[in-house]
Amino acid sequence: MILLLALLILVPAAAAMLRRNLVHSALLLVLSWAGLAAFYLWSGAEFVAFAQVLVYVGAVSMVVLFAVLLTRQNPDRAAPPDAAARLRAGAAVLTAAAVGAVIGHAILATPLPAAAGAPPVLTVRQLGLELMGRHAGSLLVIGALLTVALLGAVVLAAAEPGEKPGGKP
């Protein structure tokens, strides 16, 4: 089961990073995020799975698609991969492989507890009590952070005063 989920998560993610068409990348990432939601569901964390679906599959993907469409360039302006880009890609894969090797080695070298029993049960009610009880302070901070981020995003993306509404500087 986990191997199946891994396939569902990793393959679209890798494909998304390789595609040249940004819309395809975004849609493939939606698939990958949905796979993650399935993983959470399988682990017994239903609430996180729903949050993942709502936030990533629903909202972030829409924001990404909007960004893609708003910043769409003429096809002829998209530069073909040049030597510098190829060099960068090679270096990137090497770096990522090194990071992966280090982490992977660390994981395999660590003795971890063997398989647990049934998935733990954490009802939405318990979670709500946790959030409003022990973690109430953090929840407030997160709320403030989200508000500030929202305002910041609006300020950043808003047209500047001298600019025409069409966004053509």
């Binding site: 960068r88 990137a92 770096t95 090194a98 990071v99 280090v102 080695h105 660390a106 070298a109």
Partner: peptide, 20 residues
């Protein structure tokens, strides 16, 4: 930006190797 990110990753690898 890529340079910064790469420096982070390389530093992480070095740290990991030292720890291991």
């Amino acid at each position: 930006v890529h340079g910064y990110l790469r420096a982070l990753a390389v530093a992480f690898v070095v740290l990991g190797l030292v720890l291991l």
